[in-house]
């Protein structure tokens, strides 16, 4: 099962490597990891997507809670929550493909954020599934570079 785990932690040097080190030392898997400071600059919010059965996820949450820098751990998957991810993508364009690519951009409501002579840079935000679908739709064309942020998430309760 895929889980989205949200971690509030002290915004201190080394905090990220404590979390990353915990995952590698205990053989837990990381699908994606995002982190940035919150509105309180002394705290960071980290969102980790991991895949594991209930036993593994329980261990991940407990072991994260043991880290001294960690203030709070929530398995968002267990509650109503919203997930978003951002994609930046570079794609080759030419006379033959441009119209078809434009059509996909419209279809997915993606944005062209930079245009050069022979390539676009596109931006698309949304659920991971939408981004996967967009990438699939573009796979018929010449994608030059893909950069995804990984998932960030928030609980829908107050």
């Amino acid at each position: 099962m895929r889980h989205v785990i949200s971690i509030l932690l002290e915004n201190e040097a080394g905090a990220l490597s404590r979390v990353a080190g915990l995952f590698s030392a205990r053989g837990f898997n990381i699908e994606s990891l995002t982190v940035a400071a919150t509105n309180d600059p002394t705290l960071s919010r980290m969102t980790i997507v991991s895949i594991g059965d209930d036993y593994i996820i329980e261990q991940i949450v407990k072991q994260l809670n043991k880290l001294i820098d960690v203030v709070e751990v929530v398995d968002l998957t267990a509650t109503e929550h919203i997930e978003r991810e951002l994609l930046l993508l570079k794609i080759d364009i030419d006379q033959n493909t441009q119209a078809d690519i434009d059509e996909q951009i419209d279809l997915f409501s993606a944005k062209i954020i930079d245009i050069s002579e022979d390539f676009y840079i596109l931006e698309l935000g949304g659920k991971s599934q939408k981004i996967n679908d967009f990438l699939k739709a573009l796979s018929a064309f010449k994608v030059l570079e893909v950069s995804r942020t990984g998932v960030t998430g928030i609980c829908q309760k107050r």
Binding site: A13, G14, S17, R18, G21, A25, I68, D69
Partner: peptide, 14 residues
């Protein structure tokens, strides 16, 4: 030192 000991201490500080 903080990196080397991270996985064998309860916590560490620089």
């Amino acid at each position: 030192a903080v990196g080397i000991t991270r996985s064998c201490v309860k916590h560490n500080f620089l």
